[in-house]
């Protein structure tokens, strides 16, 4: 079975989420000995296409280069994908904000029920996926002839970014739908690693009490560890940090080597976003906090003393 993967990219380069999706696609294609192709839809995206061509296991890259695809508007990209899928059995997109925006629109255009955020490929038509914030795992079988799927990145290894030598083929679609236009973006500027790809994450919760406390206590610890900074939904709701810091069911799903939860009680919805981390450290003054039930190492006490001490001793 042949599988088309939607590349996550910034035109110049490929984002890691693509590599996890390629691994899922290879698992799926493997059930019938098919090929994995990657679609790079963008504007001036030759760089991203060249990077995709080097990914191990990718046999062809489709490059749709048009101003209309530059901002990844779902209204423009979805019809392009739906058209290309005439030649494929399955479409996989990373479960990023971009993939989640585009894939269901593709599914509806093809009259397919999407399978969201798969954790594993069990067979050519059967997948596991989390429901109820990851408190249950459903095994679902799709009866649709074509599959439309989003892939939870943390559940699949990254395909090697080098070693492949796929051809790059230009494709085109209807381009501008006239339904929507891009007006601008305010991206969080940070020298720190990106949350979903970071090896170490330091997250703060409501116990920090203010945005200033994040700057004063969380940031120095993160910088010492070379870590990304995350936050609980409570800290985001309280306005301490922007929403794109949010780790949890309604935010980002992460699985770093080390996750340090500072002043986070461990609500179900937060645990859903980080419980697959390799090592979890919790610092909290409430020794009954649920976060300690998933933490490998718990430290009970005042974060305002313990965090600076930890920062100084690393």
């Amino acid at each position: 079975m042949s599988v088309l993967v939607l590349a996550e990219h910034d035109n110049a380069s490929l984002k890691d989420a693509t590599l996890n999706a390629v691994s899922a696609a290879r698992a799926l294609a493997g059930f019938a000995g098919g090929e994995v192709h990657v679609l790079v839809a963008g504007s001036g995206a030759q760089g991203a296409a060249d990077a995709a061509a080097k990914v191990e296991g990718v046999s062809k890259v489709l490059l749709a280069d048009d101003a209309a695809y530059g901002d990844a508007l779902a209204e423009n990209v979805a019809p392009l994908v739906a058209g290309l899928l005439a030649n494929y059995d399955a479409f996989l997109a990373p479960a990023t904000s971009r993939g989640k925006n585009i894939a269901p629109r593709v599914a509806a255009l093809l009259d397919v029920a999407q399978v969201s955020e798969i954790l594993s490929v069990e067979s050519a038509d059967t997948f596991t996926r989390p429901i109820y914030a990851g408190n249950a795992i459903a095994t679902v079988q799709s009866s649709d002839a074509k599959k439309v799927i989003t892939v939870r990145g943390t559940a699949f290894p990254k395909a090697a970014a080098s070693g492949g030598s796929a051809s790059v083929e230009a494709v085109s679609g209807a381009a501008d739908s006239g339904l929507s236009s891009f007006k601008g973006a305010e991206l969080t500027q940070s020298a720190r690693p990106e949350l979903t790809g970071a090896k170490i994450i330091v997250s703060g919760g409501r116990a920090l009490g203010s945005g200033e406390a994040f700057t004063q206590y969380i940031d120095p610890l993160a910088d010492k560890l070379g870590a990304a900074v995350g936050a609980s939904r409570a800290a985001v709701d309280a306005g301490y940090v922007p929403n794109d810091y949010q780790v949890g069911q309604t935010g980002k799903i992460v699985a770093p080597e080390l996750y340090v939860a500072v002043g986070i009680s461990g609500a179900i919805q937060h645990l859903a976003g980080m419980k697959d981390s390799k090592v979890i450290v919790a610092i909290n003054k409430d020794e009954e906090a649920p976060i300690f039930q998933v933490a490998d190492y718990g430290l009970v006490g005042d974060l305002f003393q313990l965090v600076p001490e930890l920062t100084s001793k690393l």
Binding site: A113, A138, T139, V140, Q141, S142, Y297
Partner: peptide
């Protein structure tokens, strides 16, 4: 429905680790 739920299972449990006394 186009999707059939074959089964619903518990996610893998993560067991609690240990409490450490000091930062050191």
């Amino acid at each position: 429905p186009r999707l059939t739920t074959l089964k619903v299972s518990e996610p893998p449990k993560r067991s609690a680790g240990i409490k450490v006394k000091t930062v050191d």
